[in-house]
Write a protein that binds this DNA or RNA. Structure first.
Lengths: 200, 200
DNA sequence: ACCGTTCTTGTACAAATGTACACCAAGAGG
DNA sequence: CCTCTTGGTGTACATTTGTACAAGAACGGT
């Protein structure tokens, strides 16, 4: 009765890879479990035990694959950042050439505040967690570098930076607010930022 | 030797109010100490003991004035938010009537990223901490409501919201980046957001 | 002077947590 | 078949943490 979690995990784990002693996906699965813990309970609730429970692995598994907790956090959040950037690049690739930029950006914001809200929450927790954890600063820097490059490639350097700031601000304000902001409001803001016409 | 901190605190505390048993500023001093702990070590390092050490009071004092840790965090961060809003209002009051808005906003951003960087860090830690702590959401909401009102009062509703998003985004990106952004870069961004002229 | 109220403090204790470590399991090489 | 290496697991233990609590100190009212 000392480790109450281990028992339940055993049941979950026995679903897959119960017979083989090797599981190359273990490490990644644990990292992803850490991300979900951040999304659901916050970055300060990321403990070896919480992550192990979320991943369906015993406690010893997390300490085996990640020497220290900071390693786990760094790898997990770096992965989250990469996922997010990849998602942004996909969005950019799927964007039609002559598309109304303000409308497209509004879609993107609503996408990140709605279906992908959890991922957005994780990204922002990572962002401020990096303020006091040097190991995470690189991932944060890479994130808004990717953001700037993306927006710059559709306009110009100054406008790109401006748009990334607007985007970042809208996301930050949007995740905290209870009701999601209206689509019209977002779009008007982007149109105003782009100079009343909304087209470049 | 059980509570190593208590001894040292005694020395610090005896500087002031050592004779009187009542100290009406105690509560506020503890709350402010919590803010400095957030600024210097992050919101997840806010413990009764860390705050007590920072405030120069014994451990029992923090548990007396704040029943639970969430109370302490809520009061402290609410106070930080109020300070920040008050600072914004002061800035607005001191702003000359016909001032170049883009230049003034750039000054404000640089002020928050430079001399007031710690306060900015605290504000953002509060902001994302509210994502998983309902007790803090009110303070966060009030913060960007004040921000919107402030900027709206100098322009119009849509532009005000847009500016608050830009402001928020620039601050967030600015606190994480190692070197502070250049003044020219900030100002150009604001001018571009305000429609190339930078004047309203 | 006495008492009750409020403030203050030192200490205690259970729960949670990071991490170490001693055992299993399975396959490779002989 | 034996063994050695590597992956995996359960448990133990010291530390940190939140919180409770008993005892003391100052002050106001009577």
């Amino acid at each position: 009765m000392t480790t109450t979690d281990s028992g339940a995990q055993h049941t979950v784990r026995s679903r897959r890879a119960a017979s083989s002693g090797k599981d190359p996906q273990r490490r990644e699965r644990i990292a992803r479990a850490a991300i979900t813990v951040v999304a659901e309970r916050g970055v300060d609730k990321v403990t070896h035990r919480a992550v192990a429970a979320a991943a369906g692995v015993p406690l010893g598994s997390t300490t085996y694959h990640f020497a220290t907790l900071d390693d786990l956090l760094a790898v997990a959040l770096e992965q989250a950042a990469q996922d997010n950037v990849a998602q942004l690049r996909e969005w950019a690739k799927a964007l039609p050439a002559g598309q109304d930029l303000a409308a497209a950006l509004s879609d993107l914001v609503l996408h990140f505040l709605g279906p992908e809200r959890k991922r957005t929450v994780v990204e922002h927790e990572l962002y401020v967690a990096a303020l006091h954890r040097p190991a995470l600063q690189q991932a944060s820097t890479e994130w808004d570098a990717a953001l700037r490059d993306l927006f710059t490639s559709y306009t110009d350097p100054v406008t790109g930076r401006m748009l990334s700031a607007v985007f970042c601000g809208l996301l930050l304000q949007g995740v905290v607010r209870d009701p999601m902001p209206e689509r019209d409001e977002i779009e008007m803001i982007f149109r105003r930022a782009l100079g009343h016409s909304g087209r470049t």
